[in-house]
Amino acid sequence: MSGGAPCWQDILPGTVTLGESSRVVETGLWRSLRPILDVEKCVSCLKCWVQCPDMSIQTGEGGAVQGIDMFFCKGCGICAAVCPTGAISIRPESDFQDEADASSGGASPGKVGELVGQL
């Protein structure tokens, strides 16, 4: 290899060595439907928390539901389907087009090189 391209010795071994490093991956970018939580109606029964495949239901002291993490939420809609009080509604992402930044920001999937640079 020439021209400054990394050699195999420069690349991480074929082993993922950093635990929970996927937490920088913004899977929320996949979302086409967005769950909206109505805190007035929510009784923090945690049915959504326990069924969420993406660990996106944010909880606080004593298991109180505080919100939905749009950085990871892929918009599957399970939370709204299991909610017994109708506190979660689902709206298309296209309703939020005019938001300056639809999600909470951060690294995007595909920015692999940047992450490798940090190791």
Binding site: T27, W49, V50, D54
Partner: peptide, 19 residues
Amino acid sequence: RELTGKSNPLAEGHRMCPG
């Protein structure tokens, strides 16, 4: 309710399909 305070070995950001 108690389980919400516990860390889970499976972390966020995995690439499984929605739902």
